[in-house]
């Protein structure tokens, strides 16, 4: 089993990162949505910390993934025609969103003036000034971007399911190489 990608196959590294991020990001979307409906109290404060820690792990994974793509470029989508174009753009949109989403969360959290913690132990440096405007627009961006990601992910999953249904090997090559 090759670790590296080749022009038609995903290597082990890309596949592991892909599915790890899929699980993590789905969990983050659920947890984030839960947080936005929560009345904060001592009993649930840790969930905010968990969300931030998960977000930083996701951000690290996406950076590693992009670095890996430089070292070992992934294969392009199979097939041709409009579905190929949609797949290419959906993938680009997902990359853009999964970078912008944790960054917007980090910006908005920095702007509150409270320490942003990783794993309840390390203080992550702020990347925005302490400002209500940054906080407001940062969380608004976080919300709009996560909603957009949910929509693009539906498209992404439907596309993958359609190709699996057609049996063109797209889903299989992301699962077993």
């Amino acid at each position: 089993m090759a670790r590296r990608n080749d022009p038609t196959h995903y290597g082990l590294v890309s596949r592991v990162i892909h599915w790890a991020m899929a699980v993590l990001i789905l969990a983050m979307l659920v947890l984030g949505t839960k947080l936005s409906h929560l009345q904060p109290g001592l009993a649930n404060l840790w969930l905010y910390g968990l969300h931030k820690t998960g977000g930083f792990i996701a951000l690290t994974l996406i950076v590693l993934r992009l670095i890996w793509h430089r070292i070992s470029p992934p294969p392009g989508p199979l097939g041709g025609g409009w579905t190929r174009q949609v797949a290419i753009w959906a993938h680009r949109a997902i990359y853009g969103l999964i970078i912008a989403i944790p960054l917007s969360g980090w910006i908005a959290s920095s702007a509150t003036g409270l320490d942003v913690m990783f794993a309840d132990t390390w203080v992550v440096p702020p990347i925005a000034p302490v400002s209500e405007a940054w906080e407001h627009w940062g969380f608004l961006a976080h919300r709009v971007l996560t909603r957009t990601l949910m929509a693009v992910l539906v498209l992404h999953v439907l596309g993958a399911a359609r190709r699996a249904w057609q049996g063109d090997g797209t889903l299989r090559r992301m699962i077993s190489g």
Partner: peptide, 13 residues
């Protein structure tokens, strides 16, 4: 009583 509270209280807001 917990660290965030002290930081929030002393902060600009």
């Amino acid at each position: 009583s917990f660290p965030f509270a002290a930081q929030a209280m002393k902060g600009p807001k």
